[in-house]
Design a protein around this nucleic acid. Sequence first.
RNA 1: GUGCCCGUAGCUCAACUGGAUAGAGCACCAGCCUUCUAAGCUGGGGGUUACAGGUUCGAUUCCUGUCGGGCACGCCA
Length: 578
Amino acid sequence: MTAVLNFKSHLSDLFAEALRTVAPEQAATILLERPKQAQHGDYSCNLAMQLAKPLRRSPRDIAQALMAALPASGVVEKVEIAGTGFINVFLTVAAKQSVVRGVLQAGAGYGHIRRGAGKKVQVEFVSANPTGPLHVGHGRGAAYGASLSNVLDAAGYAVTREFYVNDAGRQMDILALSTWLRYLALHGISVPFPPNAYQGAYVRDMAQQISAAHGARYVRAAAEAMHSAPSVEEDADAHLDALIANCKKLLGEDYAYIHNHVLTEQLGDCRNDLAEFGVHFDEWFSEQSLFDSGLVARAVDTLKHGGHLYQQDGALWFRSTTFGDEKDRVVQRENGLYTYFASDIAYHLNKFERGFDRVINIWGADHHGYIARVNGALKALGLDSDRLTIALVQFAVLYRNGEKAAMSTRSGEFVTLRELRNEVGNDATRFFYVLRKSDQHLDFDMDLAKSQSNENPVYYLQYAHARICSVLQQWQGDAAVLKQADVGVLESDYEKVLLQHLIDYPQVIEGAAEDLAPHLIAFYLKDLAADFHSYYNASRFLVEDEKVKQARLALIAAVAQVMRNGLALLGVSAPEKM
RNA sequence: GUGCCCGUAGCUCAACUGGAUAGAGCACCAGCCUUCUAAGCUGGGGGUUACAGGUUCGAUUCCUGUCGGGCACGCCA
């Protein structure tokens, strides 16, 4: 007989059949749940309650009829009616036991499902301005995006991980200017450093690098740098813009070098930081390239031809209110420059033209006001905005010694992702970041994450894995034997609970992929580890009876495999010793 | 002021998208190591799911209002 691997869909088929017999004209959705309590069986169906109203019969009555019409199945032990009309299904132990062999044979592939059917999904995340080190807010987006991408990958989607590089805007100019001013200072030229320029120590470092490599080549007179700039008190932004303009003019061709140097430097730092964090990208997409290829102009043109733009106060506006936005938005400023929004429209057009079936943007929660206009722009371009999902990630607040760790970008005194990783460790950092629903505020307790004690949930999971490895190590047997082990003796309550957990894993992947919720994996693994620890304390594995020993070892080896698979999705290591 | 998100045990959070007696960890109390890792396990107390209505067989979940918190409301990126 062929083993049933997906009990849920198997049972779903059986109920569909019963439904056709009992009420062929009804098109109810068949929902199977895992009851919270064991006495309610392995799976529970509420179909009878759904049908009560349209059929004008009592739920228990309908449940009786459905139960009678349910086709026989080798994996079903018994079916019961309970409560107001739940139909509870109990599986045979033999059916559940077969999962052990399934897990061991599939190995790292266990939990990989075909739900995505190879559909192309793009996940764009982090996309921080390359103007300084990543901070803890970016860290959450990075951990979430990376884990989500892994989950989607496991669920059978073809995932492209992408970082959008904001290399075209004013922020990059400000960074170039900041670096140049620090460079001038190194050469004894004193220009007052604007308060809204980049203050961080890394700016001085870059100035030092440039000075070391090129000496005084980029030195210009202070007076010229400050030429006709309004005072900071008058208008700080205009002051900065004037300095940028002077910088570009004075350096001429050389400006590109400074600009490019700071961009390359910061992007490289960002890439290393993320790589150390286990976060990798398939594509680093340049904003500048959208201008170079003419796509921004083309996108704006398309909107214009569609009648979605109008001229007012010298600027070009997109009529986003047509699509439910609060107000219309400027795409081209009075000075002729495109806004960030314009390049973002082009970027999304590009995403769709690359043929992704689904596009997922992971944004910080502070960007939520931006969603309406982007969706509006897609619709105006005649694109299917339903293919775009914007997942908002709430802020993370760090707590150290029971107090909020300050996060101020202005003073440059924010906690960087790198500092956090160094202090807490990559595993705990990755895990803590995805331990919350992404749309939930995150209190990141650094003391807890650092503690090497029972308080720390990361160790709890890793410890379960290490314990299993240790037992298998002492057994000294051939792991291949376990794949063929006779698991018929696994009948205790502890064992049944673990079997059911193993069976659930692929469905957890499916749920996590569907809801874009990798935290579900973390919670699942915590449960699995808890049930293993209970089992460990209640039973021995290295027993005399060879058959029992092999069966139990096979079971815990399967648990370890699923722990490894799940932790890998979260980017957390599974050590064999602790 | 307007819009979006949130409010669950003392604290930090779950709850399978509307299901059965709302669950974990931490903290607190009481136990378990001469046998595979005690970073573990077992048991206990702890709740009007912010509040008030509504929808229905059934609501922490959906709708309305009130209160409280977060975020966003540039020809910035």
